[in-house]
Amino acid sequence: MTSPSDAPILSSISIDAVVDEIAKVSIWMAELEERDDWPTPLRFGLELSVEEALANVITHAFEDVESDPVIRVDYFRPAPDSVGMRILDNGPPFDPTAVESASLAESVESAHIGGHGVRLMRHFLSHIGYVRRDGMNELTLVAGPKSAD
């Protein structure tokens, strides 16, 4: 497998910082899946993970930022059996991989409204990586076979 950081970018999409723009990314991913014949089980979890990450960026990253929001998603293939997406934004530094998953609630009354996205991403992805580079957050998401360890 090529390191996720070394794999060439095969396609990219830029979106505005509004939640309705997530639908554009879903359509773009569906087109890529059909064009490149992704392994069947990967699409659902990868799309879900990309949406969770984008929703977090759009909702929280630009609350107190005066510069124009920049959000881009890059597509790459680290291996034939894996699909990768890298989400870049120019919001303040934020590492989603450092966020703890919300604890599982025992009742509707005690359940927290948020915090479930991180748990879902960890379940469906084989790799999650974060780096701050050139003033941008870079969140790398890979769906594929999980290593045994």
């Binding site: 879900l48 949406e51 969770e52 929703a55 409204i113 479930h116 996205g117 879902l120």
Partner: peptide
């Protein structure tokens, strides 16, 4: 997604 779950929880 978790947004849909959130709506159900509300």
């Amino acid at each position: 997604s978790s947004s849909g779950l959130r709506a159900l929880l509300v």
